[in-house]
Design a protein around this nucleic acid. Structure first.
Lengths: 226, 226
DNA sequence: CATTATTTTTATCCCCGCAAAAATATGTTT
DNA sequence: AAACATATTTTTGCGGGGATAAAAATAATG
Protein backbone atom coordinates (compact mmCIF):
# COMPACT_ATOMS: atom_id res chain seq x y z
CA UNK A 1 0.00 0.00 0.00
CA UNK A 2 1.50 3.26 -1.18
CA UNK A 3 1.15 6.24 1.13
CA UNK A 4 0.50 9.74 -0.09
CA UNK A 5 2.94 12.49 0.71
CA UNK A 6 0.58 13.93 3.27
CA UNK A 7 0.08 10.59 4.97
CA UNK A 8 3.84 10.19 5.16
CA UNK A 9 4.13 13.60 6.76
CA UNK A 10 1.57 12.68 9.39
CA UNK A 11 3.34 9.45 10.24
CA UNK A 12 6.65 11.23 10.57
CA UNK A 13 5.17 13.92 12.78
CA UNK A 14 3.58 11.31 15.03
CA UNK A 15 6.85 9.43 15.20
CA UNK A 16 8.71 12.59 16.17
CA UNK A 17 6.24 13.45 18.90
CA UNK A 18 6.31 9.92 20.28
CA UNK A 19 10.09 9.77 20.18
CA UNK A 20 10.52 13.08 21.94
CA UNK A 21 8.52 12.08 25.01
CA UNK A 22 9.95 9.08 26.76
CA UNK A 23 7.06 8.41 29.11
CA UNK A 24 4.16 8.10 26.65
CA UNK A 25 4.10 7.18 22.98
CA UNK A 26 0.72 8.87 22.56
CA UNK A 27 0.48 11.88 20.30
CA UNK A 28 -2.41 14.30 20.73
CA UNK A 29 -4.38 15.85 17.93
CA UNK A 30 -3.33 19.33 18.98
CA UNK A 31 0.34 18.41 19.19
CA UNK A 32 0.22 16.98 15.69
CA UNK A 33 -1.61 20.02 14.38
CA UNK A 34 0.95 22.35 15.96
CA UNK A 35 3.91 20.48 14.52
CA UNK A 36 2.41 20.23 11.05
CA UNK A 37 1.06 23.77 11.03
CA UNK A 38 -2.43 22.64 10.19
CA UNK A 39 -5.81 22.65 11.97
CA UNK A 40 -6.89 20.05 14.51
CA UNK A 41 -9.96 19.34 12.36
CA UNK A 42 -7.75 18.25 9.50
CA UNK A 43 -5.63 16.16 11.85
CA UNK A 44 -8.62 14.43 13.36
CA UNK A 45 -9.85 13.50 9.93
CA UNK A 46 -6.51 12.10 8.87
CA UNK A 47 -6.04 10.15 12.09
CA UNK A 48 -9.23 8.29 11.37
CA UNK A 49 -8.04 7.41 7.88
CA UNK A 50 -4.62 6.29 9.03
CA UNK A 51 -6.26 4.17 11.72
CA UNK A 52 -8.48 2.57 9.10
CA UNK A 53 -5.34 1.67 7.20
CA UNK A 54 -3.88 -0.01 10.24
CA UNK A 55 -1.06 2.48 10.73
CA UNK A 56 -2.25 3.98 14.01
CA UNK A 57 -3.84 2.89 17.26
CA UNK A 58 -6.48 5.48 17.97
CA UNK A 59 -8.01 6.10 21.40
CA UNK A 60 -10.79 8.46 20.55
CA UNK A 61 -10.42 11.79 22.34
CA UNK A 62 -7.13 10.58 23.83
CA UNK A 63 -4.50 10.36 21.17
CA UNK A 64 -2.77 8.02 18.76
CA UNK A 65 0.29 5.80 18.67
CA UNK A 66 1.96 4.06 15.77
CA UNK A 67 1.23 0.41 15.10
CA UNK A 68 4.16 -1.80 14.14
CA UNK A 69 3.29 -1.23 10.53
CA UNK A 70 3.02 2.51 11.03
CA UNK A 71 6.35 2.52 12.82
CA UNK A 72 8.01 0.76 9.89
CA UNK A 73 6.62 3.33 7.50
CA UNK A 74 7.71 6.21 9.70
CA UNK A 75 11.22 4.84 10.05
CA UNK A 76 11.55 4.51 6.30
CA UNK A 77 10.81 8.20 5.98
CA UNK A 78 13.11 9.18 8.84
CA UNK A 79 15.87 7.10 7.29
CA UNK A 80 15.48 8.85 3.95
CA UNK A 81 15.32 12.27 5.58
CA UNK A 82 18.51 11.80 7.56
CA UNK A 83 20.45 10.19 4.74
CA UNK A 84 19.61 13.10 2.47
CA UNK A 85 20.63 15.53 5.20
CA UNK A 86 23.97 13.81 5.40
CA UNK A 87 24.32 14.12 1.64
CA UNK A 88 23.40 17.78 1.65
CA UNK A 89 26.06 18.61 4.24
CA UNK A 90 28.88 16.26 3.39
CA UNK A 91 28.56 16.06 -0.38
CA UNK A 92 27.03 19.38 -1.33
CA UNK A 93 28.51 21.51 1.43
CA UNK A 94 25.35 22.98 2.91
CA UNK A 95 25.40 24.23 6.48
CA UNK A 96 23.27 22.26 8.92
CA UNK A 97 20.81 25.10 9.25
CA UNK A 98 20.02 25.09 5.52
CA UNK A 99 19.05 21.50 4.96
CA UNK A 100 15.85 20.77 6.81
CA UNK A 101 13.42 22.10 4.27
CA UNK A 102 15.23 20.47 1.36
CA UNK A 103 15.35 17.11 3.07
CA UNK A 104 11.64 17.37 3.76
CA UNK A 105 11.15 17.23 0.02
CA UNK A 106 13.75 14.63 -0.79
CA UNK A 107 12.48 12.25 1.88
CA UNK A 108 9.37 11.58 -0.18
CA UNK A 109 11.26 10.24 -3.17
CA UNK A 110 10.52 6.58 -2.73
CA UNK A 111 12.81 4.11 -4.46
CA UNK A 112 14.43 1.47 -2.28
CA UNK A 113 17.41 1.04 -4.58
CA UNK A 114 18.03 4.78 -4.58
CA UNK A 115 18.24 4.89 -0.81
CA UNK A 116 20.39 1.78 -0.67
CA UNK A 117 22.87 3.28 -3.10
CA UNK A 118 22.82 6.68 -1.44
CA UNK A 119 23.54 4.98 1.86
CA UNK A 120 26.53 3.18 0.36
CA UNK A 121 27.71 6.32 -1.44
CA UNK A 122 27.76 8.19 1.87
CA UNK A 123 29.64 5.36 3.59
CA UNK A 124 26.70 3.97 5.58
CA UNK A 125 26.55 6.84 8.05
CA UNK A 126 24.94 6.20 11.43
CA UNK A 127 24.17 9.80 12.34
CA UNK A 128 22.80 12.78 10.49
CA UNK A 129 24.42 16.22 10.71
CA UNK A 130 22.45 17.06 13.85
CA UNK A 131 23.66 13.92 15.61
CA UNK A 132 20.37 12.05 15.22
CA UNK A 133 20.58 8.34 14.56
CA UNK A 134 19.88 7.13 11.04
CA UNK A 135 17.73 3.98 10.99
CA UNK A 136 19.57 1.16 9.20
CA UNK A 137 18.46 -0.69 6.09
CA UNK A 138 16.43 -3.07 8.26
CA UNK A 139 15.01 -0.03 10.06
CA UNK A 140 16.76 -0.95 13.26
CA UNK A 141 16.98 2.01 15.62
CA UNK A 142 19.45 1.45 18.46
CA UNK A 143 18.54 2.81 21.85
CA UNK A 144 20.60 5.71 23.03
CA UNK A 145 20.38 7.13 26.50
CA UNK A 146 20.31 10.91 26.40
CA UNK A 147 18.94 13.70 28.52
CA UNK A 148 18.07 17.30 27.74
CA UNK A 149 20.97 19.61 28.47
CA UNK A 150 18.80 21.63 30.85
CA UNK A 151 18.62 18.65 33.20
CA UNK A 152 22.31 18.95 34.04
CA UNK A 153 23.40 20.28 37.41
CA UNK A 154 26.43 22.45 38.19
CA UNK A 155 29.61 20.42 38.44
CA UNK A 156 28.44 17.75 36.00
CA UNK A 157 30.16 16.92 32.75
CA UNK A 158 28.45 15.96 29.53
CA UNK A 159 28.85 15.47 25.81
CA UNK A 160 26.51 16.89 23.19
CA UNK A 161 24.75 14.03 21.41
CA UNK A 162 22.30 15.73 19.10
CA UNK A 163 20.46 18.98 18.59
CA UNK A 164 16.88 19.65 17.63
CA UNK A 165 16.62 20.55 13.97
CA UNK A 166 13.39 22.42 14.43
CA UNK A 167 14.68 25.97 14.21
CA UNK A 168 17.16 27.06 11.58
CA UNK A 169 17.99 30.19 13.53
CA UNK A 170 18.85 28.14 16.59
CA UNK A 171 21.03 25.80 14.54
CA UNK A 172 22.89 28.75 13.10
CA UNK A 173 23.50 30.05 16.60
CA UNK A 174 24.66 26.67 17.86
CA UNK A 175 27.09 26.52 14.98
CA UNK A 176 28.48 29.93 15.88
CA UNK A 177 29.13 28.97 19.47
CA UNK A 178 30.43 25.61 18.28
CA UNK A 179 28.02 23.59 20.35
CA UNK A 180 27.95 20.59 18.06
CA UNK A 181 27.52 16.85 18.54
CA UNK A 182 30.59 15.41 20.23
CA UNK A 183 31.55 18.56 22.09
CA UNK A 184 32.26 17.96 25.78
CA UNK A 185 31.74 20.51 28.48
CA UNK A 186 31.50 21.12 32.21
CA UNK A 187 28.58 22.88 33.85
CA UNK A 188 29.99 25.79 35.81
CA UNK A 189 26.71 27.12 37.16
CA UNK A 190 23.01 27.45 36.51
CA UNK A 191 21.26 30.75 37.17
CA UNK A 192 18.25 30.40 39.38
CA UNK A 193 16.08 33.06 37.84
CA UNK A 194 16.15 31.92 34.20
CA UNK A 195 17.93 28.56 34.28
CA UNK A 196 20.60 29.90 31.96
CA UNK A 197 23.69 27.74 32.16
CA UNK A 198 27.37 28.64 32.23
CA UNK A 199 29.53 25.98 30.66
CA UNK A 200 33.26 25.53 30.19
CA UNK A 201 34.71 23.52 27.37
CA UNK A 202 37.89 21.56 27.01
CA UNK A 203 39.56 24.45 25.22
CA UNK A 204 38.80 26.62 28.24
CA UNK A 205 36.20 28.83 26.60
CA UNK A 206 33.13 29.64 28.65
CA UNK A 207 29.64 30.45 27.41
CA UNK A 208 26.35 31.35 28.94
CA UNK A 209 23.59 29.29 27.38
CA UNK A 210 19.95 30.30 27.66
CA UNK A 211 17.19 27.96 28.60
CA UNK A 212 15.80 28.03 25.08
CA UNK A 213 19.05 26.54 23.85
CA UNK A 214 19.54 23.95 26.59
CA UNK A 215 16.01 22.78 25.86
CA UNK A 216 16.99 21.87 22.33
CA UNK A 217 20.23 20.04 22.98
CA UNK A 218 20.42 16.40 24.02
CA UNK A 219 23.48 15.29 25.96
CA UNK A 220 24.93 12.21 27.59
CA UNK A 221 26.45 12.60 30.97
CA UNK A 222 30.08 11.72 31.49
CA UNK A 223 30.37 10.02 34.85
CA UNK A 224 34.11 10.04 34.73
CA UNK A 225 36.17 13.14 35.09
CA UNK A 226 38.36 15.31 32.99
CA UNK B 1 3.86 31.62 -8.80
CA UNK B 2 4.57 28.11 -7.59
CA UNK B 3 3.52 25.29 -9.89
CA UNK B 4 2.06 22.05 -8.61
CA UNK B 5 3.78 18.79 -9.36
CA UNK B 6 1.10 17.92 -11.91
CA UNK B 7 1.43 21.26 -13.65
CA UNK B 8 5.16 20.75 -13.86
CA UNK B 9 4.64 17.35 -15.43
CA UNK B 10 2.33 18.83 -18.04
CA UNK B 11 4.82 21.54 -18.95
CA UNK B 12 7.61 19.04 -19.29
CA UNK B 13 5.52 16.75 -21.45
CA UNK B 14 4.58 19.63 -23.71
CA UNK B 15 8.20 20.68 -23.93
CA UNK B 16 9.27 17.17 -24.86
CA UNK B 17 6.64 16.88 -27.57
CA UNK B 18 7.52 20.27 -28.99
CA UNK B 19 11.24 19.55 -28.91
CA UNK B 20 10.86 16.22 -30.66
CA UNK B 21 9.13 17.61 -33.71
CA UNK B 22 11.20 20.19 -35.49
CA UNK B 23 8.53 21.47 -37.84
CA UNK B 24 5.80 22.46 -35.39
CA UNK B 25 5.96 23.43 -31.72
CA UNK B 26 2.28 22.55 -31.26
CA UNK B 27 1.38 19.70 -28.95
CA UNK B 28 -2.00 18.02 -29.32
CA UNK B 29 -4.25 17.00 -26.47
CA UNK B 30 -4.05 13.36 -27.46
CA UNK B 31 -0.26 13.40 -27.73
CA UNK B 32 0.00 14.87 -24.25
CA UNK B 33 -2.49 12.35 -22.87
CA UNK B 34 -0.57 9.48 -24.42
CA UNK B 35 2.77 10.64 -23.05
CA UNK B 36 1.42 11.27 -19.58
CA UNK B 37 -0.72 8.13 -19.50
CA UNK B 38 -3.85 10.05 -18.61
CA UNK B 39 -7.16 10.78 -20.36
CA UNK B 40 -7.64 13.52 -22.94
CA UNK B 41 -10.42 14.93 -20.77
CA UNK B 42 -7.96 15.56 -17.96
CA UNK B 43 -5.48 17.08 -20.37
CA UNK B 44 -8.04 19.40 -21.87
CA UNK B 45 -8.97 20.64 -18.44
CA UNK B 46 -5.37 21.26 -17.45
CA UNK B 47 -4.50 23.00 -20.72
CA UNK B 48 -7.16 25.57 -19.97
CA UNK B 49 -5.75 26.21 -16.51
CA UNK B 50 -2.18 26.47 -17.73
CA UNK B 51 -3.32 28.89 -20.42
CA UNK B 52 -5.07 30.98 -17.81
CA UNK B 53 -1.78 31.15 -15.96
CA UNK B 54 0.01 32.40 -19.04
CA UNK B 55 2.16 29.33 -19.52
CA UNK B 56 0.62 28.11 -22.77
CA UNK B 57 -0.72 29.48 -26.02
CA UNK B 58 -3.90 27.58 -26.66
CA UNK B 59 -5.59 27.28 -30.05
CA UNK B 60 -8.82 25.63 -29.14
CA UNK B 61 -9.25 22.27 -30.86
CA UNK B 62 -5.80 22.70 -32.44
CA UNK B 63 -3.14 22.33 -29.79
CA UNK B 64 -0.87 24.24 -27.44
CA UNK B 65 2.61 25.69 -27.40
CA UNK B 66 4.69 27.02 -24.55
CA UNK B 67 4.84 30.75 -23.92
CA UNK B 68 8.21 32.23 -23.01
CA UNK B 69 7.26 31.93 -19.39
CA UNK B 70 6.12 28.36 -19.84
CA UNK B 71 9.34 27.54 -21.64
CA UNK B 72 11.38 28.89 -18.74
CA UNK B 73 9.46 26.75 -16.30
CA UNK B 74 9.82 23.68 -18.48
CA UNK B 75 13.55 24.18 -18.86
CA UNK B 76 13.97 24.45 -15.10
CA UNK B 77 12.39 21.03 -14.76
CA UNK B 78 14.38 19.53 -17.60
CA UNK B 79 17.55 20.90 -16.05
CA UNK B 80 16.75 19.32 -12.73
CA UNK B 81 15.80 16.03 -14.33
CA UNK B 82 18.99 15.72 -16.32
CA UNK B 83 21.27 16.83 -13.51
CA UNK B 84 19.76 14.20 -11.23
CA UNK B 85 20.15 11.59 -13.96
CA UNK B 86 23.82 12.47 -14.15
CA UNK B 87 24.10 12.09 -10.40
CA UNK B 88 22.33 8.74 -10.41
CA UNK B 89 24.69 7.31 -13.00
CA UNK B 90 28.01 8.93 -12.15
CA UNK B 91 27.74 9.20 -8.37
CA UNK B 92 25.46 6.33 -7.42
CA UNK B 93 26.40 3.91 -10.19
CA UNK B 94 22.98 3.24 -11.67
CA UNK B 95 22.73 2.00 -15.23
CA UNK B 96 21.12 4.43 -17.67
CA UNK B 97 18.05 2.25 -18.00
CA UNK B 98 17.29 2.44 -14.28
CA UNK B 99 17.22 6.16 -13.72
CA UNK B 100 14.28 7.64 -15.55
CA UNK B 101 11.59 6.94 -13.01
CA UNK B 102 13.74 8.08 -10.10
CA UNK B 103 14.68 11.32 -11.81
CA UNK B 104 10.99 11.96 -12.49
CA UNK B 105 10.56 12.20 -8.75
CA UNK B 106 13.71 14.12 -7.95
CA UNK B 107 13.04 16.72 -10.62
CA UNK B 108 10.19 18.11 -8.55
CA UNK B 109 12.34 19.00 -5.57
CA UNK B 110 12.49 22.72 -6.04
CA UNK B 111 15.31 24.55 -4.30
CA UNK B 112 17.52 26.74 -6.51
CA UNK B 113 20.49 26.44 -4.19
CA UNK B 114 20.20 22.66 -4.19
CA UNK B 115 20.37 22.50 -7.95
CA UNK B 116 23.22 25.00 -8.10
CA UNK B 117 25.26 22.96 -5.67
CA UNK B 118 24.40 19.68 -7.32
CA UNK B 119 25.51 21.15 -10.63
CA UNK B 120 28.85 22.19 -9.14
CA UNK B 121 29.25 18.86 -7.34
CA UNK B 122 28.84 17.03 -10.65
CA UNK B 123 31.34 19.33 -12.37
CA UNK B 124 28.83 21.36 -14.36
CA UNK B 125 27.99 18.63 -16.83
CA UNK B 126 26.56 19.62 -20.20
CA UNK B 127 24.96 16.30 -21.09
CA UNK B 128 22.94 13.73 -19.25
CA UNK B 129 23.68 9.98 -19.47
CA UNK B 130 21.57 9.66 -22.61
CA UNK B 131 23.48 12.41 -24.37
CA UNK B 132 20.74 15.01 -23.96
CA UNK B 133 21.85 18.57 -23.32
CA UNK B 134 21.44 19.92 -19.81
CA UNK B 135 20.10 23.48 -19.78
CA UNK B 136 22.54 25.81 -18.00
CA UNK B 137 21.90 27.85 -14.89
CA UNK B 138 20.50 30.64 -17.08
CA UNK B 139 18.41 28.01 -18.86
CA UNK B 140 20.33 28.46 -22.06
CA UNK B 141 19.83 25.55 -24.42
CA UNK B 142 22.37 25.51 -27.27
CA UNK B 143 21.15 24.39 -30.63
CA UNK B 144 22.47 21.08 -31.82
CA UNK B 145 21.91 19.76 -35.29
CA UNK B 146 20.94 16.11 -35.16
CA UNK B 147 18.94 13.70 -37.25
CA UNK B 148 17.25 10.42 -36.48
CA UNK B 149 19.49 7.48 -37.20
CA UNK B 150 16.92 6.05 -39.58
CA UNK B 151 17.46 8.98 -41.95
CA UNK B 152 20.98 7.80 -42.79
CA UNK B 153 21.70 6.22 -46.15
CA UNK B 154 24.14 3.41 -46.94
CA UNK B 155 27.72 4.60 -47.18
CA UNK B 156 27.23 7.48 -44.76
CA UNK B 157 29.11 7.89 -41.52
CA UNK B 158 27.65 9.26 -38.28
CA UNK B 159 28.15 9.62 -34.55
CA UNK B 160 25.53 8.84 -31.93
CA UNK B 161 24.52 12.03 -30.16
CA UNK B 162 21.73 10.96 -27.85
CA UNK B 163 19.17 8.26 -27.34
CA UNK B 164 15.53 8.46 -26.36
CA UNK B 165 15.09 7.65 -22.70
CA UNK B 166 11.49 6.61 -23.16
CA UNK B 167 11.89 2.84 -22.94
CA UNK B 168 14.04 1.22 -20.30
CA UNK B 169 14.10 -2.04 -22.25
CA UNK B 170 15.42 -0.24 -25.31
CA UNK B 171 18.08 1.51 -23.27
CA UNK B 172 19.18 -1.79 -21.82
CA UNK B 173 19.48 -3.21 -25.30
CA UNK B 174 21.40 -0.21 -26.59
CA UNK B 175 23.80 -0.63 -23.71
CA UNK B 176 24.34 -4.29 -24.60
CA UNK B 177 25.20 -3.52 -28.20
CA UNK B 178 27.25 -0.56 -27.00
CA UNK B 179 25.41 1.97 -29.08
CA UNK B 180 26.06 4.90 -26.78
CA UNK B 181 26.54 8.64 -27.28
CA UNK B 182 29.87 9.30 -28.97
CA UNK B 183 30.05 6.00 -30.83
CA UNK B 184 30.87 6.40 -34.52
CA UNK B 185 29.76 4.04 -37.23
CA UNK B 186 29.38 3.49 -40.95
CA UNK B 187 26.13 2.48 -42.59
CA UNK B 188 26.79 -0.70 -44.56
CA UNK B 189 23.28 -1.21 -45.88
CA UNK B 190 19.62 -0.64 -45.24
CA UNK B 191 17.13 -3.41 -45.87
CA UNK B 192 14.28 -2.37 -48.10
CA UNK B 193 11.55 -4.43 -46.55
CA UNK B 194 11.88 -3.33 -42.91
CA UNK B 195 14.41 -0.50 -43.02
CA UNK B 196 16.68 -2.41 -40.69
CA UNK B 197 20.21 -1.06 -40.87
CA UNK B 198 23.55 -2.83 -40.95
CA UNK B 199 26.31 -0.75 -39.40
CA UNK B 200 30.02 -1.21 -38.91
CA UNK B 201 31.91 0.41 -36.09
CA UNK B 202 35.48 1.53 -35.75
CA UNK B 203 36.39 -1.67 -33.94
CA UNK B 204 35.17 -3.63 -36.95
CA UNK B 205 32.09 -5.12 -35.31
CA UNK B 206 28.91 -5.15 -37.35
CA UNK B 207 25.33 -5.11 -36.11
CA UNK B 208 21.91 -5.21 -37.64
CA UNK B 209 19.73 -2.53 -36.10
CA UNK B 210 15.95 -2.64 -36.37
CA UNK B 211 13.82 0.28 -37.33
CA UNK B 212 12.47 0.55 -33.82
CA UNK B 213 15.97 1.23 -32.58
CA UNK B 214 17.09 3.62 -35.32
CA UNK B 215 13.94 5.60 -34.60
CA UNK B 216 15.09 6.27 -31.06
CA UNK B 217 18.68 7.27 -31.72
CA UNK B 218 19.73 10.75 -32.76
CA UNK B 219 22.97 11.10 -34.71
CA UNK B 220 25.11 13.73 -36.34
CA UNK B 221 26.51 12.97 -39.74
CA UNK B 222 30.25 12.97 -40.28
CA UNK B 223 30.91 14.53 -43.67
CA UNK B 224 34.54 13.63 -43.54
CA UNK B 225 35.81 10.15 -43.84
CA UNK B 226 37.37 7.56 -41.66
C1' DC C 1 -22.26 16.64 -47.25
C1' DA C 2 -21.40 12.76 -44.37
C1' DT C 3 -18.21 10.22 -41.68
C1' DT C 4 -14.58 9.95 -38.51
C1' DA C 5 -11.24 11.58 -35.26
C1' DT C 6 -10.22 14.81 -31.92
C1' DT C 7 -11.19 18.09 -28.38
C1' DT C 8 -14.01 20.21 -24.94
C1' DT C 9 -17.71 20.28 -21.62
C1' DT C 10 -20.33 18.36 -17.93
C1' DA C 11 -21.00 15.77 -13.99
C1' DT C 12 -18.82 13.08 -10.59
C1' DC C 13 -15.22 11.20 -7.56
C1' DC C 14 -11.18 11.18 -4.24
C1' DC C 15 -7.67 13.55 -1.36
C1' DC C 16 -6.94 16.89 1.84
C1' DG C 17 -7.53 21.32 3.63
C1' DC C 18 -10.71 24.61 6.55
C1' DA C 19 -14.47 26.79 9.84
C1' DA C 20 -18.20 26.02 12.74
C1' DA C 21 -20.69 23.16 15.65
C1' DA C 22 -21.21 19.15 18.45
C1' DA C 23 -19.20 15.80 21.55
C1' DT C 24 -16.11 14.42 25.01
C1' DA C 25 -12.57 14.96 28.60
C1' DT C 26 -10.52 17.51 32.32
C1' DG C 27 -10.39 20.50 36.24
C1' DT C 28 -12.65 23.25 39.77
C1' DT C 29 -16.05 24.36 42.92
C1' DT C 30 -19.56 23.29 46.06
C1' DA D 1 -20.33 13.11 44.44
C1' DA D 2 -22.64 16.58 41.50
C1' DA D 3 -22.38 20.70 38.68
C1' DC D 4 -20.11 23.75 36.08
C1' DA D 5 -16.36 25.82 33.16
C1' DT D 6 -12.68 25.09 30.08
C1' DA D 7 -9.86 22.67 26.85
C1' DT D 8 -9.58 19.26 23.47
C1' DT D 9 -11.31 16.30 19.93
C1' DT D 10 -14.53 14.91 16.51
C1' DT D 11 -18.18 15.62 13.19
C1' DT D 12 -20.29 18.09 9.55
C1' DG D 13 -20.37 20.73 5.57
C1' DC D 14 -17.78 22.75 2.16
C1' DG D 15 -13.99 24.20 -1.30
C1' DG D 16 -9.95 23.50 -4.46
C1' DG D 17 -6.89 20.48 -7.19
C1' DG D 18 -6.86 16.90 -10.20
C1' DA D 19 -8.60 12.62 -12.25
C1' DT D 20 -12.41 10.19 -14.92
C1' DA D 21 -16.44 8.68 -18.14
C1' DA D 22 -19.97 10.16 -21.00
C1' DA D 23 -21.80 13.47 -23.92
C1' DA D 24 -21.45 17.43 -26.83
C1' DA D 25 -18.83 20.30 -29.94
C1' DT D 26 -15.54 20.98 -33.42
C1' DA D 27 -12.12 19.77 -37.02
C1' DA D 28 -10.51 16.89 -40.68
C1' DT D 29 -11.50 13.89 -44.56
C1' DG D 30 -13.58 11.27 -48.32
Amino acid sequence: MQLSRTEQNYLKAIYMISASSVESPEASTNAIAARMETRPASVSDMLRRLSDKGLLNHNRYRGVSLTDHGMQQALVIVRRHRLWEHFLVHSLGFRWDEIHEIAEELEHVSHPELIARLDAFLGNPTEDPHGELIPGAQLQMPYRHTMPMNALAPGEQARVVCVDEGSDALLKYLDEIELRPGIQFYVVSVAHFDQSMRIRREDGTEWRITREVTNSVQVEQIDGLA
